[in-house]
Design a binder for these strands. Sequence first.
DNA 1: ATCAAATAATAATATTTGTTAATCACGAAG
DNA 2: CTTCGTGATTAACAAATATTATTATTTGAT
Lengths: 255, 255
Amino acid sequence: MTTLTTNLATVGISPGGHLMHPIVRKLAAYGPLAPEEQAVLAGLGAGAQLVEGRLDLLSEGCVPDSAVLVLEGVACRYRHRRTGTRQITAYLLPGDLCDLDFVHLGRLNHSVATLGSCRVARVPREVLAGLTTQYPAVARALRLAKLAEEETTREWVMNVGCRSAIERVSHLLCELHERLRAVGWATKAGYDLPLTQQDLADTTGLSNVHVNRVLRQLRLMRVVEVGGKRVDILNLAALQEIAEFQADYLRPAVA
Amino acid sequence: MTTLTTNLATVGISPGGHLMHPIVRKLAAYGPLAPEEQAVLAGLGAGAQLVEGRLDLLSEGCVPDSAVLVLEGVACRYRHRRTGTRQITAYLLPGDLCDLDFVHLGRLNHSVATLGSCRVARVPREVLAGLTTQYPAVARALRLAKLAEEETTREWVMNVGCRSAIERVSHLLCELHERLRAVGWATKAGYDLPLTQQDLADTTGLSNVHVNRVLRQLRLMRVVEVGGKRVDILNLAALQEIAEFQADYLRPAVA
DNA sequence: ATCAAATAATAATATTTGTTAATCACGAAG
DNA sequence: CTTCGTGATTAACAAATATTATTATTTGAT
């Protein structure tokens, strides 16, 4: 929690201001939101709870009746194989709502868990439904956010499917940088990232040992330093170059 | 085209019957559709055109004003890297509508192309919009189909992220079998598949040579024979076992 | 402050997969 | 019927990455 408040300070947002609500910040990028809409969105985080790291928020097989809104920290979707290996299929960052639609589903076929400690709020499906019917601009923004999420998953298929180890890791670091920056949790210099190398391995489809090798290489190249729950970007252009990073998939253009 | 009509015969569906319209067949799985709804859906395929293989239907960078409905054949979404390698991120099979939502987007950041020759129809965004507002059951089915598509993309992340070569290929073959069976284009014994080994490689993140090795191994194991634009399944249980295939991600349960 | 546990770092080795190249099979075009 | 081009097949070799093991370092708990 010390870390969390420290972060708030470093991004220069005074507690209490609307912009500190990451979901408002995120959705406003898709089009203007009326003050009332901003207030309602901010209100979703009202009953937020602090959750420690490595805890399931939703478990495979459950039938969730509410979505999860992340306000601070990093969470993820993941699944285990019978062999024990874990694959992370998405990160949930501040402002991310997981999931707009899975309330239609029966049993969940993957789990959602915190990685580092998080501040999260539960949003009952009725609340979400009421919100979207009452505020078309919000509904539209959520739809676009979901599109971005889909694009992101496709980008991940690209990443694990046809990039080398160093490219994969670099791409992931670029994506996290861009997404965190959009909600005020990263600067050009870097961002806090409470992941282990094993988490990065489970995300990129590499072994933890090889992730370590890649991170060392990136450090020696003076591109980025990852460690101590922190990502320090030394040369963003180089990092993006290695990753062939094109940020456009994160922000669907408005038609 | 000879192949296409032959196939129609082999699945035992008389031309002209409603069930021959794969989108009706697919969406009906998500809940009952009134005859009128079925007719309207079937009507979407009215102006369908035959398109030869390896042709772009939508190109990266374009701003599509209509969705693409596949009636016969296999198409895909893909993207190229600067290095020239291609990653296929989704298959579009008969009954698949690509894409319900990308009409919201500006420029497309991936391409859609036929693999084998296809019969496809264009569905203008207004038609699609009218359909969903007028027929809630159709809108709901399309939403569930989209959910299945998202689950599928996540499953692909799993596949390339944490499965071995033989597991990846097997899983892909299982998925195609299941999806094609749902629309009447596969039997327990197998299905037609107009892909090259390079296409399979671009899907699974392997080299074409290694795909060949894996297919040989599966053949020698008497599990499945892939060749001549055809997949013959010799031992479905074994194939699914190798792939750890769980079909549930393809059919979101109704809440 | 100390200890225990988790994470990170590194090396040595094994395995998987990619690359290159050569040959083979087959269908399409003339 | 022949030719040509594409895709399939195979082998030999190279590269990338995994595995195992050991030691350091950090973190968290008492």
